[in-house]
């Protein structure tokens, strides 16, 4: 237990250091903000894929749902920053509850197909009800309200630096929360379901109930990410709720690695950076994503994070050979 908590500190510390350093290392603060927002979405996807074993092609529904709902309440009802974000969390959770409760009626491949079909359904819903969503044009003029706490304006969030700081705090809070969830009895039960659903069920866990709660948590975090993305762009495009968005979130999660939440940050960083650098040079850069996806499955099943930790383990075991202490950095 002691080693676990110390590693827990280690991982969280690494996340904190990365968050603080990112705006200084990266070419622009906006890019860093985008990475953190997608890292949130990937982290939520990781909770499902890495810790519950649920491959969901439905993450775009929650991302888009969060973006639309927060934008709509800000535009039509003048909601403030915090309340709009809370709405996006609620809507993400509600959508995840609906999609989850229908999809987890089936397992394995059927589950995956259902989530994909629901993503298409959500896309056509958004496309059809264009009075609300703007349809193909997207929802324009999404505001980015000032951050007010107890009536005091902390920051107007107008500058990209202040918005980054805000997103960074949100990310860190969610990160710590997600780590708590994973290491709670609830989280270990999810892992048990991932490893052997029949046995978990036989031991007496209501596995569908657990899966649904995991879905709702994932949906609410993804909804939050969607809302932040709309505030970043001042715009909620239809592509937010597209199948391609679901795929991208999934690809970030997998390329980053699903054995640790930090992998999601790595994955989101890698893909967003790759897209930013390549899309201007070569519009068909998505082809590289396809190749990368195949390469990760064939040669690096642990993703980037798996690669980093095995490298790290090698270095440490060389150093500490004489001490003969086991150094597990996998979780």
């Amino acid at each position: 237990m002691n080693s676990k908590t110390s590693i827990f500190r280690g991982i969280t510390l690494i996340a904190l250091v990365l968050i603080v350093l990112m705006p200084f290392i990266l070419p622009s603060v906006t890019l860093a903000t985008e990475i953190l927002i997608f890292a949130l979405a990937a982290l939520a996807c990781n909770l499902l894929l890495g810790y519950t074993g649920l491959l969901s092609f439905g993450q775009g529904i929650f991302f888009g749902g969060g973006a639309y709902s927060a934008s709509l309440v800000m535009i039509h009802f003048n909601f403030g920053l915090i309340s709009a974000l809370l709405i996006s969390i609620l809507v993400g959770a509600a959508l995840a509850f609906i999609v989850g409760s229908l999809s987890i009626r089936r397992t394995g491949i059927y589950f995956v197909m259902l989530t994909l079909a629901f993503t298409q359904m959500a896309y056509f819903l958004a496309y059809t009800f264009s009075d609300w969503t703007g349809g193909d044009n997207g929802l324009l003029d999404v505001p980015r309200p000032a951050l007010n706490i107890l009536g005091i304006t902390v920051s107007d969030l107008k500058s990209s630096e202040s918005f980054y700081a805000f997103v960074a705090i949100v990310f860190f809070v969610v990160f710590v929360f997600a780590r708590r969830v994973i290491h709670s009895p609830f989280g270990t039960t999810l892992v048990a379901i991932r490893e052997n659903e029949n046995r978990s069920s036989a031991v007496g866990f209501s596995t569908n109930h657990f899966k649904l709660v995991a879905f709702v948590i994932s949906g609410s975090i993804t909804g939050l990410a969607g809302a932040l993305y709309a505030m970043l762009l001042n715009f909620a495009p239809l592509s937010n709720i597209d199948l391609v968005m679901s795929e991208n979130i999934l690809i970030m999660t997998i390329i980053g690695g699903t054995s640790s939440l930090l992998g999601s940050l790595l994955g989101a960083g890698a893909i967003v950076l790759l897209g930013d650098v390549l899309s201007s040079i070569w519009p068909r850069w998505m082809m590289i994503l396809g190749v990368a996806l195949i390469a990760v499955v064939l040669f690096l099943p642990g993703g980037l994070w798996g690669g980093v930790t095995s490298l790290f383990n090698k270095l440490i075991s060389n150093k500490k050979n004489k001490e003969e202490s086991s150094t597990e950095v996998s979780k």
Binding site: V112, I251, G290, L293, I294, V296, V297
Partner: peptide, 10 residues
């Protein structure tokens, strides 16, 4: 699924 998704993208 992921490998065929990669093939689809390519």
């Amino acid at each position: 699924i992921l490998v065929t998704l990669g093939v689809a993208l390519i």
